[in-house]
């Protein structure tokens, strides 16, 4: 469904993402993990059209989306959420979700119905008339998810929707994400919460210093010495092996 081929992004002398290849298949939940500054969000931004890749190809459903603007990519069925939540602060939750729903209809009533439906899916029904600026962190993360979902995407790019949430809230949102996948939406997510990554993803890619260092099932990736070193520092894998 999504094919990223040899994509590179440089900011001046810094190579933020370096020749990355990855693939997301239909109906999968694929995660992208890596230490802070690894280039995960930059990669997302390139896939969703917010940044232009310096090299490489990004194909969505066998058609190149390189050089398209975000709204065009959204119309094709690929939509992203933001790590730093970007609510329409002056609007209510309902109005926020309706903006997403309007991408498929110009009828206000239809958009409202769709928004209420989506709110039900992500569990925001009781917050519909609340101002988005009054939402908690968990509420805002859900709102990001809801707005994106309201555009009826085929592929959702979720950028750390669990960061800053407490364990109960994480369990809740994991259930919500599984529910979304069961409705036929493919999901590609960036996440730091390992428990959720293990629990959710079919496959995982690990990015470090802009390079892919591992990929596979979450459990195999977690045992990969390169991955352990990326997270815990040089020599950590050896030390762990000795300790065991």
């Amino acid at each position: 469904m999504l094919k990223v081929n040899n994509v590179t992004k440089r900011f001046g002398g810094l190579v933020a993402v370096s020749s990355v290849d990855l693939e997301v298949n239909e109906k999968e939940i694929v995660s992208l993990i890596g230490p802070n500054g690894a280039g995960k969000t930059t990669l997302f931004a390139m896939v969703a059209g917010f940044l232009k890749a310096d090299e490489g190809k990004v194909d969505f459903e066998n058609a190149s989306v390189l050089g398209m603007r975000p709204h065009q990519i959204c119309k094709l069925g690929m939509v992203r959420t933001f790590q730093i939540t970007q609510p329409f602060a002056g609007l209510t939750t309902l109005e926020n979700i309706m903006v997403g729903a309007y991408s498929n209809t110009s009828e206000t009533d239809l958009a409202r119905t769709k928004a209420e439906e989506v709110a039900e899916v992500v569990g925001m029904t009781s917050l519909l008339n609340q101002g988005a600026d009054g939402l908690t962190v968990a509420g805002r993360k859900r709102l990001e998810l809801a707005r994106a979902l309201a555009t009826d995407p085929k592929l959702l790019l979720l950028d750390e929707v669990m960061a800053g949430l407490n364990p109960t809230e994480i369990d809740d949102i994991v259930t919500v994400i599984k529910g979304i996948r069961d409705r036929g939406v493919t999901i590609f997510l960036i996440e730091h919460v390992m428990k959720a990554v293990m629990n959710l993803s079919d496959r995982t890619y690990v990015l470090n210093d802009g390079k892919l260092i591992a990929s596979g099932t979450p459990s195999s990736v977690a045992e990969d010495p390169q991955v352990i070193e990326a997270y815990l520092g040089h020599g950590a894998a050896e030390a762990m092996a000795e300790g065991a």
Binding site: F50, P70, C74, F82, G90, M98, G100, S106, A148, T151
Partner: peptide, 22 residues
């Protein structure tokens, strides 16, 4: 819809663009 899209642009242009608004 047009009005809602304008308000979305006012409140947050990046998010508006991400949600399919030209």
């Amino acid at each position: 819809r047009f009005g809602a899209q304008l308000v979305a642009i006012r409140e947050n242009e990046d998010a508006a663009e991400a949600l399919g608004i030209n």
